[in-house]
């Protein structure tokens, strides 16, 4: 393989990593703060894509115009779902939470089938990114670079929010000691709604910006949630940088794997996950569990 093609594969892997990161980071955030394993996360990724498709009527020229609207709609859906459903199982055993979020996955799947139809949806490249860029003489989709940029910006903004703002400090604190926060007069239920909505908003954003990359149809939600879990398991649940690292690893493994052994390209991500579970069950950048007192 020549250098330009090596670079092409690398960038392709990075583009899928960008999509994977946006998908998985919300799952990780929600688990870290609320302790909820959100099985419906893939549905919100799909919903973001459906919202964007419905708003643009499948015409890519309106992409940038409607993207903020699609994200806003996802945020609202996230907030409503937290208020109506998630809140009721926060203090219950895990299997209640899993049952609820799994039910949500099935419900959202059927509702989107009714609202958006069962056929596939895909749109062209967004405005400004229709033509490929030439890297070392090889054409490469300019939107992939745009997507990597968007994901990097999202990662940076999220980090700034979590580590440089007061509200971000509260988000990190609530993961450690919810009662103490409540005792200090923080509106924890509202905080939970915000965190859940942000996590869902990120998934919706990921789904919307991935639509030019991948078509969407029924069943995407399930595939997406499986990919998201692989990413957070490899990276470490609740770790922002772990999610980013795992997304890049898996994106690249799939890109180069498809080149070496195309028939087994799907397997590589699972092999990586299995290895991580065996040797570092808390994930590459996750924290090993401490003994609770």
């Amino acid at each position: 393989m020549t250098l330009p093609f090596f670079f092409l594969e690398f960038m392709t892997g990075l583009a899928s990593a960008a999509s994977l990161f946006l998908l998985a980071v919300g799952l990780s955030l929600i688990f870290g703060a609320l302790g909820i394993v959100n099985f419906a996360h893939g549905s919100f990724f799909a919903l973001g894509a459906y919202f964007l498709f419905a708003l643009t009527h499948g015409d890519a020229t309106g992409f940038w115009h409607y993207l903020p609207l699609a994200v806003a709609a996802s945020l609202v859906v996230g907030a409503v779902v937290e208020r109506v459903f998630i809140r009721r199982v926060l203090n219950r055993a895990e299997h209640y939470q899993i049952l609820l979020t799994y039910a949500l996955l099935l419900i959202i799947e059927d509702v989107s089938k009714i609202c958006f139809g069962a056929d596939y949806k895909s749109i062209g490249m967004p405005k400004g990114f229709e033509m490929p860029v030439f890297v070392l003489g090889i054409p490469f989709p300019s939107y992939y670079l745009g997507l990597v940029g968007l994901a990097a910006a999202a990662a940076l903004l999220l980090w700034l929010f979590l580590h440089r703002t007061r509200y971000g400090t509260l988000v990190r604190a609530v993961a450690q000691d919810r009662e103490m926060l409540e005792a200090l007069g923080v509106n924890v239920p509202l905080l939970f709604t915000v965190i859940f909505a942000v996590g869902i908003g990120l998934a919706g954003f990921g789904g919307a910006v991935s639509l030019p990359l991948e078509s969407i149809s029924t069943g995407v939600a399930m595939d997406a949630v499986i990919s998201a879990f692989i990413v957070v398991v490899v990276g470490g649940l609740g770790s922002l940088w772990g999610t980013l690292l795992a997304a890049i690893l898996i994106g690249e493994i799939q890109a180069f794997g498809a080149l070496v052994l195309p028939e087994f390209s799907i397997v590589f991500a699972y092999v990586l996950m299995a290895a991580v579970l065996l040797f570092r069950p808390w994930g590459l950048l996750g924290r090993p569990p401490t003994v609770r007192t």
Binding site: M1, F5, L8, E9, T12, A15, S16, Y120, I138, P139, L213, E214, S215, I216, S217, V220, Q254, A255, A258, L259, P262, S265
Partner: peptide
Amino acid sequence: GGESNYTPYITALVQ
């Protein structure tokens, strides 16, 4: 059939 991401196949074809 029903593949959603053709990128790896396209890059392979181009090569």
